[in-house]
């Protein structure tokens, strides 16, 4: 048995409690009106919170559950199912590289390698300066202009390995 003193709750580092921003709460409440049952607003609510904070923390899941009148488990079940909802912190900008067949044929693998080399991270990683997170994404529906990537809400077409440095400059 350890002889160390047990950690007391009051000694744990203080974390500011998560408060749903009033605008976000209002947006979620509005979203509820578009459906016959409030639960249908779960995905949009998660996106609203994520738009402000970059990701969805545990406390945000509980807060959304309270507004919509569903359980936190239901909200988390949804949050963990969909790949565009982040349950871990991400960088200020999220780069998503299409890795489906169209972009496979037009050379996304070289593009991925170039991003990984330039940023020094692998898929799922975030740069130490918290600027970029790199992720794969399924077919972005622009196979005639591949390779295709998204950075945040911007879609970029015909992206070659040579163009990425200039492209990333646009995202501070």
């Amino acid at each position: 048995m350890s002889t160390a003193d047990p950690v007391k709750l009051k000694d744990l580092p203080k974390v500011a409690p998560f408060v749903l921003h009033p605008d976000d709460r209002a947006a979620i409440v509005h979203e509820k009106t578009l459906y016959d049952y409030p639960r249908a607003a779960v995905i949009e609510a998660l996106k609203i919170v994520q738009a402000r904070h970059g990701w969805v923390c545990d406390a945000a899941v509980t807060a959304i559950a309270d507004v919509l009148g569903v359980t936190a488990a239901d909200v988390d079940g949804v949050a963990t199912f969909y790949n565009l909802i982040f349950r871990q912190p991400v960088g200020r900008h999220v780069i998503k590289i299409c890795d489906s067949i169209g972009c496979f044929l037009t050379g996304y693998e070289a593009l991925r390698a170039a991003f990984e080399k330039h940023l020094g991270i692998r898929y799922g990683g975030t740069t130490p300066d918290n600027r970029f997170t790199l992720l794969p994404v399924v077919c972005l529906g622009a196979c005639d202009r591949g390779p295709v990537i998204m950075i945040d809400d911007d879609t970029h077409f015909n992206v070659g390995p040579d163009g990425i440095v200039a492209l990333l400059e646009r995202y501070a």
Binding site: L34, A40, I43, E44, Y82, N83, L84
Partner: peptide
């Protein structure tokens, strides 16, 4: 009839 856009969050 009401009409609205519901955007998804991924998954084929």
């Amino acid at each position: 009839v009401s009409l609205s856009v519901h955007t998804g969050a991924g998954r084929y």
